[in-house]
Amino acid sequence: MKLGLQLGYWQAGPPTNHAELVAAAEESGYDAIFTAEAWGSDAFTPLAWWGRETSRVRLGTSIVQMSGRTPTSIAMHALTLDHLSNGRLILGMGVSGPQVVEGWYGQPFSKPLARTREVVDIIRQVLARKGPVTNDGPHYPLPFNGPGAMGLGKPLKPITHPLREDIPIWLGAEGPKNVAQTAEIADGWIPIFYTPKSAGMYQPWLDEGFARPGARRTRETFEIAATCHLQFTEDDGPAKQAVVDAMKPIVALYMGGMGAKEMNFHHQVFTRMGYGETADEVQRLFLSGQKDEATRLIPDDLVNDMHIIGTEGYVKERVAQWEETGVTTLLLSAHSADEIRKVAEVLA
Rank of each mutant, 00 (worst) to 15 (best):
L3D: 00
G8M: 03
G13L: 03
H18W: 02
H18P: 00
H18V: 00
L21A: 08
L21N: 06
V22Y: 10
V22L: 11
E26S: 01
E27P: 07
G29V: 06
A32S: 15
A36H: 10
W39F: 13
D42H: 12
A48Y: 15
W49D: 15
G51N: 08
T54W: 03
R58D: 07
R58S: 13
L59W: 07
V64N: 13
V64G: 13
Q65S: 07
S67G: 14
T72D: 11
M76P: 05
M76I: 10
T80S: 15
L81T: 09
S85L: 06
R88N: 02
R88D: 01
Q99H: 12
Q99T: 09
V100D: 02
E102K: 07
G103P: 12
P108W: 01
P108H: 01
F109V: 12
F109W: 13
P112C: 09
L113G: 06
T116S: 08
V119Q: 12
Q125W: 03
Q125E: 04
K130W: 00
T134S: 07
N135T: 07
D136Q: 11
H139C: 05
H139V: 05
L142G: 06
F144N: 09
N145V: 07
N145T: 09
G148K: 13
A149D: 12
G153H: 11
K154E: 12
P158R: 11
R164F: 13
I167T: 06
P168W: 10
L171W: 02
G172E: 07
G175K: 06
P176K: 08
V179G: 02
A180C: 08
Q181P: 04
A183K: 10
A183R: 08
E184P: 01
A186W: 01
D187Y: 13
G188Y: 03
W189H: 04
I190A: 04
I192R: 06
F193S: 08
T195G: 11
S198G: 14
A199N: 01
M201G: 06
P204S: 02
G209A: 15
G209D: 08
P213E: 03
R217K: 02
T221G: 10
A226S: 15
C228Q: 05
F232T: 06
T233M: 05
D236P: 01
V243G: 06
D245W: 02
K248M: 14
K248W: 13
I250H: 02
A252V: 01
M255V: 12
M255D: 03
G259S: 04
A260G: 15
E262Y: 12
F265Q: 00
M273V: 11
M273K: 15
G274V: 03
Y275H: 15
A279Y: 01
Q283A: 14
Q283K: 05
L285A: 03
G289N: 09
K291E: 11
T295H: 05
R296Y: 02
R296P: 01
L297C: 01
I298M: 15
D301C: 05
L302E: 05
V303S: 06
M306Q: 15
I308E: 04
T311H: 07
E312H: 04
G313A: 13
Y314E: 05
K316I: 11
E317A: 09
E317V: 04
Q321D: 11
W322T: 05
E323A: 11
E324P: 10
E324A: 15
T325W: 10
T325Q: 14
G326V: 01
G326Q: 00
G326P: 00
T328S: 07
T329Y: 04
L331C: 06
L331A: 10
S333L: 02
A334F: 03
A334W: 01
K342I: 02
